[in-house]
Structures are given as C-alpha cells and as structure tokens.
Nucleic acid binder design. Structure first.
Lengths: 236, 236, 236, 236
DNA sequence: CATGAATGAGTATTCATTCAT
DNA sequence: GATGAATGAATACTCATTCAT
C-alpha cells in the first residue's frame, strides 16, 4: 500500500569522479539543447545521479554552465599551448591562433553559442573566472601584435586590443550561420585570409603603399568635407 | 450594482496610428528591459491599448520585436544614405560607415543588444526581413571594397565578405562592455583606427601605378575645391 | 498526435463572484489542511478556476490566507455587533464577548488555528489589516473595562489591556486541546466561570456606596421588565 | 591519489558528552533560527560532529527539538523549586510563579516561541514527555488555588484549571509582541497586576462587594435577555 | 562508532495568448 | 473593432534521513 522508499542504494564515488560525470553530462545536454531548454533532471539522469547530488557540487544551474564553459576554455588554452610556442614569425603565429580558434568553434559549436549568447552578455560576466580565462585566451593575439611592434615588424602605432577585437569579432561573424546550423565554413581559408588582412594592416607604412600623397589627400578631403557638412548640412 | 469600468473610451484611431503607438511603446519597453523581461501588458499600457489590441496588428511578441528592429534598420539605412553618397574615397567611405555604425550602437544600445542576442541567433533569422535589411546595411562595406577593387585601389584578391565580418565583428566586440553597461567607447577613435587597419589590409601588395595616382589626384583636387567652396561660398 | 490546447472555454464571471468563489474554496482548504499543506491547485480546482486566475486577485498564497482570515474577522465583528449593543451590565457584556468568542472558535477551529499559528506569529503581523481587525475585535473587552471604570463599577486602577490579555489568553489555552482535535469544551460553562473571575477581579476593593446600589437597582428593574415583556408580550 | 580528508580526528568522546554537545548546539541554532530554518548540518557543525552522529542519539530533527525543550522545562522547574517552597501566602505564591514564568520567557524567547508554535500545536503533543513536564510546570498554579480553597482563603467554587489557563494565557498574550521581536515587557509590573486580578477573582464573595442583590439581578436580567433573544432575535 | 555522500519527493508562480462579450 | 478576464504549461531547488565504507 504505502509504497515508500523505492530503493536507496547509495552509490559512493570519489567526488572528482562525480563532478566529472556531472560535467560531462551537463556539457552534452547544454550543447544539445541550449541553456534554458536544458533540464537539471535530464542532466542528473545522464550522469547517473539524482538531482540533489548536482547541488552538492554546483551552486545552481547557471554555475554548472559556467563551470562547463570554464573547463572548455582551460582545455582550449592548454591544448594549443605547446604547438603555439613552436610557431615562429608573426604571420604564422596569427594564423595559428586564428585557425585553432576556428577549429574550436567547429568542434564545439554548442559551447560557443552558450558563451556568446548566455555567458558573455551577463551583467556579472566580468566577475567571472570565465572572463579571466577568455581574456587570457584572446590576449595571445594581442601579444603577437605587441611582439611584432617590439621587433619592428609592425608599425609602432598599432592597437593590439583592436586587432584582438577584429580577429575574434570577424571569426564570430564568419561562423554565425554555422552556429545557427545553417551552413559550414572553411577554417583554413578563413584563417589565411584573415591573417593576411591583419598582417597587412599592421605593416609599417611604406612610401607609396600608404599615407602617400594620395592617401593624405583623401583623408584631408574627407576631413574638410565632414567639417563642411557640420557647417552646412546637405538639405535632407 | 457596483459600477466598475474605469473608462469606457472606445478609442477608435486609424490603424496606422495604433500601430505606430504600439511600436513606439514596444521600442521603449524592449529597450529598457530586454526581450524576455518585457511584458505585453506593459507595452499595451504605455501604448494606451489593451493586450488584445496588440494581437490585431502583430502575430505575437516576437513579431513585435522583429518589427521594431526592422523599423530601426530602415531608419538607420535611410538616415545615413544621403551623407554616404557624398563621401568620396575608399578610406573615407569605410570610415563613414564604421563611424555611423558605432554611433547607432551608442544611440540605441538596447536595440543593438536585442538584435545581437535575440534576433540574430534565431534559427529562422534568415527567413526574416530583418536579415535582408541587415544584409543591405552591411553590404555597403562590402560594396566599398568591391569598388576599390574595381578601381584598382584595393588588391584584386581581397574578400569583401571577410572585410564585412571584420568590420562588424570588431565593432561588436569593441562595444560589448558598453552593451553590458560597464563602460563607454570612443566612436571617432575606434572608427579611425579600424578604418586604417582595414584600408591598409586591402591595399595592393605592390606599389600603386603612377598614372593612377595622377588620375586620382585630379579627382581629389576637384573634391577639395568643391568642399572649400562650401566652406566659403562666394558672396551671392 | 500533437495534442495541444485541451479546450479553452473562457468562462467570464463578475470579479466579485470570482473572488468570493476563490475565497470560499480557500477557506475550505485552509481549514481542512492548514496553510502549508494546502495546495493552490486544490483551491483552484474547488473554486472552478485555473491556478493562474487566483493570481489575478491575490498576490500570493499567503495573501489569500490573510484575506480569508480578514473576512472571518469582519464576519465575527459584524455578526456580534447588534447583539452586543443590546447587552447591558458589565458582567453581561464581558460574558457576551467571551461566550461569542468561544462560539467562534468552536465553529471555526481551523481558522482559529491558522490565525494563532500562522498569521499572528508573523514578523509583519502588525502591518496587517488583520492586526487592526483583531485589535478592534479584542478592544471590546477593554472597552467594557473602561466603561466599568468610568461608571465606578470597577476599580480605578484596573488595567483594560491586562484584562484583554487574560480573557483571550485564557480562552486560547482553554481551547488548545480542542484545536488539537483532542477534545471538546463547554462554551457556556467556560464563559460563565471566566466572566466571574474577571468581574470579581475588577470590583473595587471597598464596598459599594449605598446610593449607587439603589440607583442601579432601578435600572436593572427596568431592564428586567422590558425583558419579561419580550418573553411574554401582552396579547395584541 | 588526491588525498582530501580534511581531518581524520575520530573524536571518541563519552556519549553523554556528545549528547550534551549536540543539545547545546541545537538549542543555539533552534533559538536563533526557529525550527524549520534550522539545519541539521548546521547543528552538527557547531557540535563538532557530522550529521549521521546526531541520528545515533536522536530519532530525528523533531525529537531533537523536543529533547531540547524538555531540558529547558526541567531546568525551569528545578531552578524555581527551592525558592517557591520558601514563599508563603497565596498572593505571594501566585506572584512568584507568574513572575518567574515571565522571566523565563524574557530569558529564552526563542525557546518559548518554539514551544508555543511548534511543539504544543502538534497532534501528538499529549503523548510527549514535554506535555507532562508542562503539566507539572503549570500545575503549580492550580495547586496554589487548591490550597487556598482548602484554607478557606479562596472561594469554594473556584476552578483551578481555569486559573491556570488565565495565568498562562495572559502571560502568553502579554508577551506576544516581545516574542515577535517588536517590543519589550515589564515582568514585575505584569506579575503584580496579574496576581492582583487573579487573587481578587478568587476571594469569597463578601456581602455587598459581590453577588449581592445588584450582581444577582444583573445576571438574572442577562439570562432573561439571552433567553428572549433566542426566542425573538432582534431584527437585523 | 563515525563518516558524509547520496537520496528524492514535492509546488508556487508567471505571462503570452485567446475569445466571449 | 476593442476589451480584458481567463487560460495552463512548465521546473529549479532544499534538506532530513540513510547506510556503505
């Protein structure tokens, strides 16, 4: 009649194992369904635990997501690290980082979406370890720029942070339709073209190639025009 | 018995007016609170209608958001159009578009977030008129590149779509902390630096042909003269 | 296949009716099961509405309980009011209030428990309308004491608030086992004995002045005559 | 691999010590947070044991609360016992018990609340040792009344149990706002006034002071009126 | 004896959308 | 056309208690 406790077989495991089981399950579920569609109960089941157990190790659902994303970043950072050290030359290093970033997105589009759409927009993102990890991850691009500037390979007035934004912004936009599951992208091709653009943009100004009479005149004319516009705006 | 109707003003307004009232209210609310925090009841109240009325003109909450975003794009596109036509020179045109895009984000961060976070990631985004509008909006960058290629100002192997992604991606990343309400950004400075990077990245690897220089000098001189004339017009 | 909306028959009723339906159902359920065991879904079902509808009229479950209790107090206060006015003499008025209070508890032990155990201990109880109602309800005892003091029937150094606490405290303790569903109690017997104790405790320590006795005898005789007349009215 | 045990101090203590540690911790926690807000894990931590250990000595959380309350009662009873014996005279004995009860509440408001709100309302309260202890504790008032009746100091028709309810009920009501942490109360003043009321209520009826012609007539009139009301209720 | 990881039941609340009046 | 009352689905989290080690 009064069916009470079903079983109650306490399956004792080392915490590290539990945590990694849960995180693996969470990564799966989050990746498949996105954050809000993911159910704690689903994650628990796949991890072979009960819902309550998840809350022994993770503050809440969001914390779990955060930890999964952090783990992913740690993975990405460490995985490339050795290879990166071996690469020489500014272009090659830019290319390496861009290419591997594209590969990571191709490998884990679900996690990428989560970071772009759930975690990064969060008002508390900056307080997050993920923010720090991401900063470390993206800083490598800026570091290459800084080195190039120190070597005299790149112009002295370049902006490392702008380059970082260009690279990661471009990659993100380039992969959006893929992240929306609509198409594919070519990591190698995109990496090459992007590296070329960035590299060329960073080279010092040669005589005729830039900032020559032509470019100067263009800019000056532009400034004059903008000034004129402010004084006498075109009749709309 | 208990007369309770607050007001019985069956406000019969022309549909266009209703629609614009609703969209104005929706824009306000969406901008202030983001999509999911926005309440249809709130929008209805600010628009001076009841919930049901909104559904006469809009399929659902998402459709309303979409229409608001579309209107914003139409606004942005038309607003810049005239000015853009007047701008000459590749660098200036790149700069113009980048600068005004940054200004739009600064002016309407709420709408920007909505597009980035709600609308664009949607699986059905491509079926949307917003997608088309955004394509038109961003195509202008690619068009500048194409023109430059045709003019011989830019290298023949440049990728207009990559440039588009670099520009809009970089802008987005540069403004993220602002969109998270954490800081500010300098539209003019960022626009200049970004235009410089892109421009330099697009120049031919070889020197410019001499005759091109001369031909373009003519053009530029002409523009200078016209600009000067606008600044100091001959006394009529 | 995709069984969606079950029905969707919108049953439109005047708000007063909905509210009273819900409150009636809530009173039933709360009375039967106590606060925390009561389910909103249960209340909704008995009221013939859907859960959401309850939240149109009541902020939350607790608010609903509060409103039910308030209604009960209003009921109790108004029900006794007319009768009370007709009662003359300090002892009789004390007795009347005590007796009817005991009757209320006997009639609605569930609500009594709720007030004693859920509502009154609440840290915000004083901010509640229920607090005000209860104050008005219990003040009547203190008022009788005050009147008696003014009339010289009771000693000048009596404490109306202490009497109030004695009366309502004693009643509560006397009915505890009943409220715990363990036994019964005798309202009439308890009311008499309690009124006697309180009355005696309030009399002046000295003897009554002779003329007072005579004056009051007149009044009492008059009341006796009128009462008798009501019992055996002259045949019309 | 990963050695993780924080401490391995298998603290083997005599059971009595364990029990008193746990009860002390429980008393603290229950007092501070109330029953349902109290966590077994919190109690365990403060007692320097783990959760499981508590269950070696106590059936469950409620049992622990019960034992804490019982201990409190034993404490209260034994503490006053000697002093009480030394007090002579009915008024003085009433006053002594009332005053010390008020002091106990003032000293341990948290435990008082627990008894009033958690333990006493329980359906199984009567089966509890706490019930017996409380009966012994409160019986002392009734005993004083009985003695007084035997001595001829109090009227023969007094009700010891009613007096008990009046005293403990009055005290409870008088201290409610204090127990809700809203104000304070004056033990000495309240004890005196309450003792006075009770004492006076228990004295034999003197000639003119009570139950004289006047009071008799009042009562009779009241009874007649009530009878009349039942026969012919006033038109509402 | 002690440990402490694992268990698992249980529910109030929101709000976009509908459709009878 | 307008109204706005009614609908109803959907889910994270807590913590007393147990029992394998």
């Amino acid at each position: 009649m009064t069916q009470r406790k079903t079983k109650r077989t306490v399956n004792r495991l080392p915490p590290e194992r539990r945590i990694s089981d849960i995180m693996a399950a969470a990564r799966e579920v989050f990746t498949e369904k996105g954050y809000s569609e993911s159910l704690i109960s689903d994650i628990a089941e796949r991890a072979g635990v009960v819902e309550g157990t998840i809350y022994r190790f993770f503050t809440n659902k969001r914390d779990l997501l955060l930890r999964v994303a952090e783990e992913w970043y740690v993975e990405m950072i460490s995985k490339d690290a050795a290879g990166f050290e071996a690469v020489k030359g500014e272009w090659n290093r830019l290319h390496y980082l861009i290419y591997h970033h594209l590969l990571s997105i191709k490998r884990d589009p679900g996690l990428s979406r989560l970071v772009f759409l759930e975690l990064r927009p969060d008002p508390l993102y900056r307080e997050t370890r993920l923010f720090t990890l991401n900063r470390d991850y993206t800083r490598r691009i800026a570091d290459v720029v800084r080195e190039g500037m120190a070597n005299g390979v790149f112009r002295a007035d370049a902006s490392p942070s702008l380059v970082r934004d260009m690279v990661f912004g471009a990659v993100e936009h380039r992969t959006w339709s893929f992240l929306r599951s609509e198409g594919d992208f070519d990591p190698e091709g995109s990496a090459q073209a992007l590296a070329d653009m960035i590299y060329a943009g960073l080279l010092p100004h040669t005589e005729l190639a830039r900032d020559t009479v032509l470019a100067r005149l263009d800019k000056v004319a532009g400034r004059l025009e903008r000034a004129a516009e402010r004084l006498a705006p075109p009749i709309a």
